[in-house]
Design a protein around this nucleic acid. Structure first.
Lengths: 222, 222
DNA sequence: AAATAAATTTAGGCTGGTCTAAAAATGATT
DNA sequence: AATCATTTTTAGACCAGCCTAAATTTATTT
């Protein structure tokens, strides 16, 4: 069965929203927003995806991926992240530059290609944003711990990934001098607005809003 | 101006047919055949490309590329061939396996990507089939000499490229043990059917039809 | 429980890219 | 030069994927 790039993008979006949200299923409107499409267009596509047995769809109800749909979605995520590794490690792109290219490359159709690329890159487990890369069978390595915003305790941590990939956010991190692998010391947590005062690699204190903190993935300093 | 992958394929086809044929301009029917489309569909697209000033089109007349159209066509050829180099040199694909993947990769939109890929590959001048790779300005290095079928003299040559990229042809070469860089000694030329008796790397004599010979690019042994 | 608001779907329309069938133009043959 | 064959274009249709506007369903208020 032929799957178009557009359909792949819908599957990917459903998968992403499903994993990020708490409740099961994804609404038409959230897809509409995520894909910058009108809700009516989304409904159209949901019907097509349902016909192809890639999603579970009942009128007016939230949708979810079938086994087959999830398999495809994970394959796309795998491709996206492997290409990002390629772009950064081999072609020296910066982390805020790779997303658009990877969005295109993820739709290249060839299983053999992606397996060889994986081998060429040394079978990486995480992409340059710290996101886990599913293996060829679709199994994800466990994510690199939790968001900074889940932690109130002062202490030392390592910045290992991000939850948000918008260019503006990544640029902001660059501007405050934060990059993957940096040490983060939590010096203060303001519980009324969720903001933090942290030190990055022992440098002078840096203020971090709750919003930013919720998108920073950290792990305990081991 | 947005150019779709489909439009790019038409430009590439016009460019290819133009360079291979002798007379100026390309006919609707040859495009139709080359692209496996019906002539009516081609006419439709020719109008669109003409509206976008990418081709010179007059009803019932052969078409040709404008400056702009040729620039784009050459850029696509550049991308195709660079990706082929990547697939063979970095991912170890065989030369009869890369075409379909390169057909997809050539449509990835990012000038920066292709320049970095070029640098990563060491700015190759020829792709693994011996075809010249246009540089970033669209200038092609001179082709690697002529077809075997143009030569009647016995003597020693080097096999440097092919004129034909169909999988069946490439497989045929593999089956007779011929690969880029091999020495070819012309032992006999039959002028009535254009066939050849050659030796490949000094191995026992090998019969080559005129058709095959016309698709083998060779240069003088230097 | 009725009224209102929000989310979702239907209906109908548009564009890109394809097709078939028929009409028109060009080229070849006598 | 008139006919016949071939090539090319037009006309009309279809599908994917999007849109707007209107109708319908579900959720929320009061």
């Amino acid at each position: 069965m032929e799957i178009s790039s557009t359909e792949e993008n819908y599957l990917k979006a459903i998968y992403a929203l499903q994993s990020s949200g708490d409740k099961p299923g994804v609404s038409t409107s959230s897809l509409s927003e995520h894909l910058n499409n009108k809700a009516a267009s989304v409904t159209d596509m949901l019907k097509r995806l349902s016909d192809k047995k890639l999603i579970h769809y009942k009128k007016y109800k939230a949708v979810s991926l079938t086994k087959q749909g999830e398999k495809l979605a994970i394959a796309i995520v795998r491709k996206h992240r492997l290409w990002e590794v390629f772009l950064m490690e081999k072609l020296n792109f910066k982390w805020d530059e790779v997303h658009d290219m990877a969005e295109q490359l993820e739709h290249i159709k060839s299983d053999e290609l992606i397996e060889r690329l994986d081998a060429f890159l040394g079978q990486p487990k995480y992409d340059p944003h710290g996101d886990p890369i599913p293996n060829a069978k679709g199994v994800l390595p466990k994510p690199k711990t939790s968001a900074l915003s889940n932690i109130q305790n002062k202490g030392h941590y390592i910045f290992v990934g991000v939850n948000e990939h918008h260019v503006d956010f990544l640029r902001h991190l660059t501007s405050i001098g934060l990059k993957i692998g940096d040490q983060i010391k939590i010096e203060e947590h303001n519980s009324y607005d969720g903001s933090y005062l942290i030190r990055i690699n022992k440098k002078p204190g840096q203020y971090i809003s709750h919003k930013v903190a919720s998108n920073l993935l950290i792990e305990m300093k081991s």
